[in-house]
Design a protein around this nucleic acid. Structure first.
Length: 242
DNA sequence: GTGAATGTTAACAG
DNA sequence: CCTGTTAACATTCA
């Protein structure tokens, strides 16, 4: 479930709990509980794939990792790794990682890199890219401190749309192409999000898990040596810069 | 039973 | 100390 747009969509479904008082909080793992009990849920916000529950005396950061799941007013049989129970209704997290944020969200997070946020700043991201000049672009795209909220699907689609080969060296990609990549990443994230909001699922893919790309060219699948993640791309449409 | 999947990070090697 | 690699973790579905 969790790539940036999915988390933002999830946040929207949780909004009815905003302003409500937590009767009982808990979970296993490092999930802190006592300090939340009796507190009002002031806000729910996101930073990329991070879901934040804000209280007057601290915030809880929830990360769904690969298998995490949040259910509303619904329980599964297995233990909850995170939960907030209200007078009416409850939020239940399974296999999620929850912990107390060290500081306020504003202190901890920089929203200029969050591809889904209104404060996203393309110029700032370009600046950060200079430090990553030696790395391949596929790696940098998944770096949450540079492209916050981008996951494997978005990475594949953004590279295809920008016509950049995933193994291109970041520093060798022409500035205009980088600009295009950022623009396409933002554009694709919006499609992803809109699909979730309207249909509940995103099935809009030009290359990801496709045999043929949107333009009809053949798609190559490669397993990245380090991360073991799969990348899909079109040799025909995506130029390799090195 | 097997394999695969939207992710991160602690631990280790060099 | 820094850099890169590996392993580990949790779950559901086909």
């Amino acid at each position: 479930m969790p790539e940036g747009p999915s988390i933002l969509h999830l946040r929207n479904t949780l909004l009815p709990f905003k302003g409500k008082v937590v009767k009982q909080a808990g979970g296993y793992g490092p999930m802190p509980a006592e300090w939340i009990n009796g507190k009002k849920l002031l806000d729910i916000c996101t930073w990329g794939k991070h879901l934040l529950f804000v209280f007057s005396n601290g915030s809880v950061r929830v990360h769904l990792m690969l298998f995490g799941e949040i259910r509303i007013n619904e329980r599964k049989t297995v233990n909850r790794s995170f939960f907030l129970e209200f007078a009416k209704g409850e939020i239940n997290g399974y296999v999620v990682k929850a912990e107390k944020l060290k500081g306020t969200p504003e202190e901890v997070y920089d929203w200029r890199t969050d591809i889904l946020h209104k404060d996203f700043d393309a110029a700032h991201v370009k600046l950060l890219l200079k430090k990553e000049a030696g790395k391949t672009i596929d790696d940098v795209l998944m770096d949450q401190n540079v492209f916050t909220g981008v996951g494997n699907k978005i990475r594949n689609e953004a590279l295809y749309r920008a016509g950049i080969h995933p193994l291109s060296i970041t520093g060798k990609i022409p500035a205009a192409k980088i600009t295009m990549l950022i623009k396409e990443a933002v554009a694709y994230v919006k499609i992803f999000y809109k699909q979730l909001e309207t249909k509940g699922v995103n099935d809009n893919f030009s290359v990801y898990k496709q045999a043929y790309a949107a333009d009809g060219s053949e798609v190559t699948m490669q397993i990245l040596p380090r991360t073991k993640r799969k990348i899909y791309f079109s040799e025909h449409k995506q130029q390799l810069f090195q």
